[in-house]
Design a protein around this nucleic acid. Structure first.
Lengths: 332, 332
DNA sequence: CTGTTAGCGCTTTCAG
DNA sequence: CTGAAAGCGCTAACAG
């Protein structure tokens, strides 16, 4: 920071207070003075120091983006959300600082302390699991936060998720409409909140559209391709009559597709497949994957908007569900 | 920030100066005093304010990650780099602030001013183009910076790239070894620095391995799938004898593959295809794409390391080339 | 309408 | 070895 507010004050022949007021649009400044100050500031290419301002105002206009599982190759879901968060926050004059839970953990500090030390005004949390010790902290802390994909609601903590229940319903309904008689479900990790909701949607839809829910056709995997592959093998071994499967993630569904290819199972003729997420890959695998799309970018935007409302208007946090959308391609 | 250095000082019965020294490992503090201070600080759960420290030290331990083209769906290259940058920086105690060129542009401020206002210690730039007006600023500014995928070198600006020349050479050599007689090249956007280098590699390799370079088999597209599709159609129309094609990006190569499928061209029998990047998709398209892999994560790490060396040891910036690697799959 | 005065929380001379 | 004092750049009472 070369040129400071004092330089401007000196050059304009006024006090620093006046410069501050003029530049920040305070009402009590003479119009001619204001113009002069603005002119001089521009001339000098003056940029107020965010750091100094943060110190005195006690807010930094800086939001933390806390990511667990922030690692190579995990972009399928994270990236678009991140862009949405960034875009919305930037639009409102906030900066975004990347924070990974690993970093905080390594330094053995609580995530709240970590954010407080940096003077972050709020946090958006993504990729965190139900059983993560940070969950409790996030909920109880008074640091304004919005969580993505985990229904945590408290005085200072809101959340944004896809409507997973309905997403799962759409999948089942579509499978039924296609004529599937016996529908299986490959769910994701049990400790993920989204898995519970997708299971609920699956169960409800089965009761409604098929007239009954049989938990034996539900099997669990870990959201990965290999997991999906194994899970499907397992499911079909135990229930060879299954003619339609709903996977709780596209990656798992693609794993399932690979299994089908190896085993000579024709998709969708022998087995109809529906995924969840609509990642890029979905359009490129063959046959193309029918799936339930999540509005990833919009989730990021929504999370950011909510946090901004909390920060600026003191609004209460809330739980927001965004609508998923069935994208019909070739596998079902 | 609730508890400040004064609280610690008071509780420990010493001055703030002493607390500061004790906590920062200064030599001239009595050992017992230091222990007491540390103990009290822990008791009070004291966290020094980064903001206050930044103000007085005139450095923020915060690095900007300047991204142009920071938008939905552009993750194929960016994400892993970003993770690499974050990991390395975090490891060395730096925070990462996301900055998109759009944001700066909207506010009509130069990128340097933008970073200075935020007190950023340095910047890592990615996704910027040769003809971007910011390029000049980056090179001339005294703000330490490292650019990814653009060879900009100056007193305060270094760069990290894949060795694109050799990457292209590997592709051509492989195509030749497979028996291709007439090799075409679908290059990326001309304003991208990487395109120039890949072209050079292509040219050199053709002269070396084939004994001649014919610029008529070089066609340009824009790195996108659709672009690659059109470019290949164009290339084959004009040169039906082409039996091997090197694409400057996987996305374009995949577009080319789609064109082949539509036209009934068998890959690799009728036409061998090699891409560049090794994005996730490469393994999933059918036939699987043979490609030149870029070490994306490592590029991010390397860029971060270079910046840290500049910042901490005052080292001169440099140009670093990272080795690409040919990944042979099914298309060539 | 404008300037003076006090800090925000921290580090750092400079004296003891 | 320790503390008092000054100040990083900015804003906000409080007086004029």
């Amino acid at each position: 920071m070369r040129v400071t507010i004092r330089d401007v004050a000196r050059a304009a022949g006024v006090s620093v207070t006046t410069v501050s007021r003029a530049l920040n649009g305070a009402a009590d400044v003479g119009e001619e003075t204001r113009q002069r100050v603005i002119e001089v500031a521009k001339q000098l290419n003056y940029r107020p120091s965010h750091v100094a301002r943060s110190l005195v105002l006690r807010k930094s206009q800086n939001i933390g983006l806390l990511v667990s599982e922030f690692r190579k190759g995990s972009h399928h879901f994270l990236y678009d959300v991140l862009v949405g968060v960034h875009d919305t926050l930037a639009e409102h004059g906030y900066d975004v600082t990347l924070v990974s839970t690993d970093t905080a953990r390594q330094q053995l500090v609580s995530y709240v302390d970590f954010c407080r030390a940096r003077g972050l005004d709020g946090v958006i949390v993504m990729g965190i699991r139900l059983d993560d010790p940070y969950v409790e902290e996030v909920v109880e802390s008074s640091l304004p936060s919005v969580v993505i994909d985990l229904p945590l609601l408290s005085r200072h903590c809101g959340y944004v998720m896809t409507d997973n229940v309905n997403g799962a319903r759409y999948a089942v309904r579509h499978l039924v409409a296609r004529g599937c008689k016996r529908i299986g479900f490959v769910n994701g990790a049990a400790h993920a909140a989204v898995s519970r909701e997708r299971l609920r949607g699956f169960e409800e839809a089965m009761r409604q559209y098929v007239g009954g829910y049989d938990e034996r056709v539900v099997v669990y995997a870990d959201f990965t391709l290999e997991g999906g592959q194994r899970a499907l093998a397992d499911l079909l071994r135990r229930h060879p009559d299954v003619d339609g499967v709903f996977f709780a993630s596209d990656l798992m569904a693609i794993g399932g597709l690979q299994y089908c290819k190896e085993e000579g199972i024709r998709v969708p003729q022998d087995l109809a497949v529906v995924g969840f997420d609509d990642i890029d890959l979905a359009r490129f695998v063959s046959p193309q994957l029918t799936t339930v799309a999540q509005p990833r970018y919009e989730m990021g935007c929504e999370a950011a908007s909510m946090l901004i409302s909390m920060l600026q208007k003191g609004e209460m946090p809330s739980g927001t569900l965004l609508p998923p959308q069935l994208v019909v391609r070739e596998t079902a």
